[in-house]
Design a binder for these strands. Sequence first.
DNA 1: AACACAGTCAACCGCAAAGGC
DNA 2: CGCCTTTGCGGTTGACTGTGT
Length: 271
Amino acid sequence: MGRQPCCDKLGVKKGPWTAEEDKKLINFIFTNGQCCWRAVPKLAGLRRCGKSCRLRWTNYLRPDLKRGLLTESEEQLVIDLHARLGNRWSKIAARLPGRTDNEIKNHWNTHIKKKLLKMGIDPVTHEPLNKEETKTSESSSHSDRSPDDHDQLKSQETNDNNPSSEENSICSPAENCSNTESNSLSLCDDDLLMSCLWGDEDIPIIDEISWDFPAAGPNLNSNNNGSIPSWDETCAWLLDCQDFGVQDFGLDCFNDVEVMNTLNALEVDNK
DNA sequence: AACACAGTCAACCGCAAAGGC
DNA sequence: CGCCTTTGCGGTTGACTGTGT
């Protein structure tokens, strides 16, 4: 019994997305919310597989994404999290709001890996490289964290959700780093970042709290209670990284005059 | 200017987990 | 309980861009 392919290969487009396709996808998700990805291409009029649509949305089109290189603080956080979690990029990304697993994975492979090697640190074990050489002859110790040694971490990970787990007993200022603050890590200093890192409460992911687009259209202002990037911030991406204007979307949900004025103002600023 | 090489990153692929029936 | 579908994840690829010769 063969596995059903994620899409019929016939007539399904692959490769880079065009602005037109992006528009269709954004338009669809803004008006209908994120529903069954498999159905999205059909409903949105795209000749893509659902998987591709989901990837495009999560890695590129999501309004809450930060663009640009990771900051020093974020990079340090990634390194620390990688030491703890290994190549669990999605888990790492979940702790860096506005960053995607793909982005972090790429950044790790292209920048951080080399940086660590330059510093004489094994990017896999996070141990000093010369230390590694001597250690290879020894049997593994608790601190010798091989890439496959993350099963242990995995169990820790599962305990992350358990408030009574041992790891959670590590008292850190994380408690002070409230969820709302955690959503704007870029504003935190390194101490706060580390606090957030060692606090094992799952940082609420922006997706979960603000990207549940109702079909009726988002109430753009009501969700902004300070913990979520303002609409002004989140919509800037539309003007920032795409070569089309907001009006081009023809979004029914953008019928709020105030919002439209803001968007227009942003667009003017951008020019 | 032309070419080669290296670096970067968006996108694809295959697998596994999750969830519904 | 087992099958099937859907979603999510991590590894990998390949196109594009920048830099050096």
